[in-house]
């Protein structure tokens, strides 16, 4: 069972979102569950800083040896920062998915809707595994 920190929010696309409760800037990454399912991540493409995205937009991609997955914007907003370290060293996604493996930060515009709690995401992934 991979870790699912209580303080984060989640999406059905296996992304995590930090900062929903206390700020306008949210940090986005992929969950440990997703990283394990992908295997060794070899390439990460993140959106460009300054891009405005809508919730559900495909804004990047994560490639592993066997597969490639889109990264979606979990909420609408402007991309204010991207993790260049993870672009240079994609293995950070496997090694520290909730920490150094974060992908990008968004300034929230509007509401953060349809996000899952840790409990709901746990239920989702235990159903899939």
């Amino acid at each position: 069972m991979s870790s699912i920190p209580d303080e984060l929010h989640y999406t059905k696309e296996h992304e995590w979102i930090a900062g929903v409760d206390d700020g306008l800037t949210l940090t986005v990454g992929i969950t440990a569950y997703a990283a394990e399912a992908l295997g060794d991540v070899v390439y990460v493409q993140v959106p460009e800083v300054g891009t405005t995205v809508a919730a559900g937009d495909a804004v990047g991609e994560v490639e592993s040896t066997k597969s490639v997955s889109d990264i979606y914007a979990p909420v609408g907003g402007e991309v204010v920062e991207v993790n260049t370290a993870v672009v240079d060293d994609p293995s950070l996604v496997n090694g520290d998915p909730y920490g150094e493996g974060w992908l990008f930060r968004l300034r929230l515009e509007g509401e953060a809707a349809d996000l899952l709690s840790a409990e709901e995401y746990t239920a989702l992934t235990s159903g899939e595994s």
Binding site: G39, D40, V42, T65, K66, N94
Partner: peptide, 8 residues
Amino acid sequence: PLRYGSES
């Protein structure tokens, strides 16, 4: 078995 740990 697809992989045991890191396929790399």
